[in-house]
Amino acid sequence: MNFTQFKNLFEKKEVTEYKNKAVHTPLVSICIQTYNQASYIKESLDAILSQKINFSIELLLGDDDSTDGTREICIAYAKKYPEKIRLFFHHRMNNISVSGKPTGIFNSLYNIFSSRGKFIAYCDGDDLWDDTYKLQKQVDYLRANPNTSFTYHEVKLIDKNGLLISNNSDLKLSERDFTSTQLKKAFIQPPISTWCFRNQIKDIPIEFTKIFNGDNFWMSLLGNYGDGKYLENIKPSFYRIHPASIWSTAEKSFQLKSKFETYSYLSKYYKRKKDKNLSEHFKSRANNYAKMIFKYYLKRKKMLEIIKFLKFYLQTLQL
Rank of each mutant, 00 (worst) to 15 (best):
S166A: 01
W195E: 02
I75Y: 15
I192P: 11
T179K: 06
Y296A: 05
I306R: 00
I206P: 00
S108L: 12
S258Y: 01
K134P: 03
Q51H: 12
N288T: 10
T194Y: 01
K12V: 05
F89S: 09
R116Y: 10
S180G: 02
K276Q: 13
Y77F: 14
T249C: 08
L164N: 06
Y133L: 15
D65N: 15
D124F: 08
K13A: 13
Y263D: 01
F294E: 07
D140I: 15
D46L: 04
P146V: 15
S258D: 12
S29L: 06
K252C: 04
S248P: 00
M292A: 09
Q200P: 06
T179S: 15
I204C: 00
K21A: 11
K311G: 01
F10E: 06
N287Q: 05
Y265V: 02
Y225H: 07
F55R: 04
I201G: 02
S50M: 08
S166M: 07
I48P: 05
D203K: 03
D65H: 08
F282I: 01
L221M: 03
K273C: 14
Y18V: 11
A76Y: 14
K276I: 14
S284E: 13
G100C: 02
A121I: 08
E11I: 00
N94Y: 05
T34W: 05
E72L: 12
D64V: 14
P205A: 00
F312R: 04
L222R: 06
K259I: 12
A47K: 09
Q189H: 04
L27F: 05
N2S: 02
Q318G: 09
N107F: 09
G214V: 04
Y289A: 00
L221C: 03
G228W: 00
T151E: 11
L59A: 10
I53G: 11
E305T: 00
D63E: 10
F6M: 03
K185D: 07
V139Y: 15
K229M: 04
C196G: 03
R240L: 10
N224K: 11
D124Q: 14
P190G: 03
F197C: 09
F254N: 07
Y110T: 12
D140Y: 08
F89D: 06
I293H: 00
N36Y: 03
L183N: 06
S99K: 11
I53P: 03
G117K: 12
L60K: 05
N95P: 05
K274F: 15
M303C: 02
E17Q: 15
K184V: 13
L319A: 10
L231S: 03
I307G: 03
K202L: 00
Y110G: 04
S245H: 04
Y297N: 03
S253G: 06
S174L: 02
